[in-house]
Design a binder for these strands. Structure first.
Lengths: 194, 194
DNA sequence: TTTTTTGCTTGACATATGTCAAGAGTTGGA
DNA sequence: TCCAACTCTTGACATATGTCAAGCAAAAAA
């Protein structure tokens, strides 16, 4: 399964054999059964983990309510960025929605690789650029004012998620409650099946 | 004024004299009087520009209404990321709110510098990491459900902007209309002056 | 100066979304 | 198998925010 990670990084910039060996040596493969936590509120995010298999959800608690910040599936590189970047405790939970296999590298090891293999900065830069791009797309969705617009944006961008996560979680991702999502969906699909 | 840019980049990772000279050779200093446009809807964002002096606002039109996506002041490196990353036309306007002096480098030149000076990737990576971090903070604000929470978050994070931009623009930044912001402010400041 | 424009506030009312409660269908465990 | 838990839907009503309109004060223009 580590081949998947190497391929992902290679596609950003070809790695030397030494660099690939180094990555292999610092990567830990860890399984998280559905429902278990990859990161909890109050912890510092000290790793970046690529999802080899499965699907995870990050969320935090605001006013006693869960707010889903993103869904992550195969190939996604998980971090709780604010906590990872600052290396301070954060407020996000990251939970396995399906059984997950993760390929994890410690923050300290990544910094070490940046030093030892300066060309790894190319990969780090491109991955961060891509993650930033994805985050900006999610933010565009959040800025839509009506519930229906946000739902429309969601099914256009990530339709496959509809099959993999509960509507309850999609609702908190889209900034509305479960009942509103249900009503929006019934209106929306009535309108689009005419 | 280019010294400001060099200092900013140096603080991310010290640059060799050759690299600094290269940066100087590809940087263009451009003035934008208040009200003029740095980027318009439909254009591709082909530059990254540090603000040497002044303040700018990016926004786009949704449903005939302006939605402010961010405010940028001294030291901020302006891009319209989705357009810059994809090198395709985007939907954002970037407008000078105050008279601005910008230090601009073309996307193509930046790619060239990445190739010629691999160590510049360290700077690119760190700058992107920081921009991503800032974007995540803005996104946290957007996920607050009530208008008052979003306003509270705003005055905690960027109180100085209150003096520099109109409430109309702050309102569209916070995802509410002008009248709502006015009411939120009067309630909020009454509450906090007791 | 006077006039016009802009920025902000306030009121009355409309509407979208949230809240609370109930119920139907499904899944999973005992 | 039955029961409990969970997911999703629907209804009635409450509330936050949006819309439209008016007005005041300060700034800019004439």
């Amino acid at each position: 399964m580590i081949a998947q990670l190497l391929e992902r990084l290679n596609s950003l910039n070809p790695m030397s054999e030494e660099l690939a060996d180094k990555i292999i040596s610092v990567t830990k493969t860890i399984d998280y059964p559905a429902g278990t936590y990859i990161l909890k509120e109050g912890q510092t995010c000290t790793r970046a983990c690529m999802i080899g298999k499965g699907l995870a959800r990050s969320y935090y608690i605001n006013d006693d309510k869960e707010i889903t910040s993103r869904f992550m599936d195969e190939g996604f590189i998980i971090t709780s960025w604010i906590s990872y970047y600052t290396q301070k405790p954060g407020n996000e939970f990251i939970q396995a929605v399906e059984d997950c296999t993760l390929l994890c590298i410690d923050h300290a090891d990544i910094q070490q690789v940046y030093k030892e293999f300066p060309e790894f900065n190319i990969i780090g830069r491109k991955q961060t650029e891509y993650a930033f791009y994805q985050a900006e797309l999610r933010t565009q969705m959040l800025r839509k004012h009506t519930a229906e617009e946000r739902y429309k944006f969601f099914i256009e961008q990530q339709p496959s998620l509809l099959q993999r996560v509960s509507l309850k979680h999609i609702a908190t991702y889209l900034g509305m409650n479960e009942e509103t999502l249900s009503r929006v969906r019934s209106r929306f699909h009535k309108k689009h099946s005419l």
